[in-house]
């Protein structure tokens, strides 16, 4: 009766393997993003960074993981027990879910069978990503509230207000792209941007807005109001320790990875690159280009973090509501006019 419930075993197997592979890749990238963050921060500050664990400190993420697991798992007396445990789990879950709709490449020929390099081509991929990023805030909010600590609560309240404010501008910036490409599917967006026909040339303002909002949604500096060590001593994760804290921090890096991948897909042509056919090397060229772009944006995220100071909270709100949303609406109107004038 309904197409989504009809499945064949081979497809299920293929997709299951892909899920596992994608999961492993996501976790690895996130783990090495923590290493990259420390290394890049060090380089920006004329230091060397972690270099004791393995060559160039490459085993540092493993060491960090072992450290997180072996630390005392402390729970405050007055905490809401179940919600306190649920919060980091849900944060992690939501962070991992988002990568399902990102097209990492065209097709990979494995065992003589073409395998799509996208977990699922939802016809509403963009909305799916918006939906799951909007859910990410629950982990922070519930965690902060369940800790029963006023600093944590401040962190959650800030996080929720910030998320709501920046989601609007983010959605409006994305709508302009959707209007231009006429689809909500990320796969079709990537196909339309073949060669150097990237959306960034048509949507520079939209990209800027989206990028700023992505920083805010990932709780990255200069928008890391929710943790804000200097004011809130860690904010929503003040009371967290051991792997629960690790999950929060880790999920943040997964979020960063996924949002960088979304930026690369939506504005920078995804797996397309001029003069490079994404089908080369049996389809491996697409993912390589895609990952290169994603890593570049992760680098930019870190670059910004180690350059800019944190916003004050009222400045953050003013930027969101009084600058980005009007700009996004103007961008949307201009795009609408452009589509009417030139396309049809």
């Amino acid at each position: 009766m309904h197409s989504i419930l009809l499945f064949d075993a081979a497809l299920v197997l293929e997709k299951s393997i892909f899920v596992v592979v994608l999961f492993i890749i996501t976790l690895t990238v996130a783990a090495y993003a923590t290493y990259g963050e420390r290394k890049i921060a060090a380089f920006f500050q004329d230091r060397i960074g972690p270099n004791r664990a393995g060559p160039f400190g490459l085993l540092q993420p493993l060491a960090d993981g072992v450290k997180f697991f072996t630390k005392e798992d402390f729970m405050p007396n007055a905490a809401e027990r179940w919600l306190f445990i649920l919060a980091p789990a849900s944060f992690m879950f939501v962070a991992c879910m988002t990568s399902a709709v990102i097209p990492w490449g065209t097709e990979l020929t494995l065992f003589g069978k073409p395998v799509s390099l996208q977990l699922t081509d939802l016809n509403i991929g963009v909305l799916y990503i918006l939906g799951f990023t909007s859910l990410g805030v629950y982990g922070i909010m519930i965690g902060g509230w369940a800790s029963n600590n006023k600093y944590s609560l401040y962190g959650s309240i800030r996080a929720s207000a910030q998320m709501i404010s920046y989601e609007l501008a983010m959605g409006l910036a994305l709508i302009a792209v959707v209007m231009m490409s006429g689809t909500l599917s990320l796969k079709e967006m990537a196909i339309q941007q073949a060669g150097l026909n990237w959306n960034i040339w048509y949507q520079p303002l939209g990209f800027l807005i989206f990028f700023i909002c992505a920083l805010a949604e990932c709780n990255r500096a200069p928008f890391d109001m929710a943790e804000c060590e200097t004011e809130l001593i860690g904010g929503y994760h003040t009371e967290y320790s051991s792997m629960k804290l690790g999950m929060f921090l880790f999920a943040e890096y997964i979020n960063m990875f996924v949002s960088c991948a979304v930026i690369a897909t939506v504005y920078f042509g995804g797996y397309n690159f001029p003069l490079i056919d994404p089908g080369w090397l049996g389809g491996l060229m697409g993912p390589i280009v895609m990952f290169a772009k994603t890593f570049f944006f992760i680098f930019v995220f870190m670059w910004i973090r180690w350059t800019l100071p944190r916003f004050r909270y009222d400045q953050l709100m003013r930027l969101g509501w009084k600058s980005l949303i009007p700009l996004a609406i103007i961008n949307m109107l201009l795009t609408g006019a452009g589509v009417l004038l030139f396309d049809k």
């Binding site: 890049i40 380089f43 500050q45 004329d46 230091r47 060397i48 670059w303 350059t307 800019l308």
Partner: peptide, 21 residues
């Protein structure tokens, strides 16, 4: 101003490191 700041940090990125192991 942001781009200026980022340019400054980028210059530091490629500068010789002062750290002594």
């Amino acid at each position: 101003a942001i781009f200026k700041g980022m340019w400054i940090t980028l210059k530091h990125f490629f500068r010789k490191k002062n750290t002594l192991s």
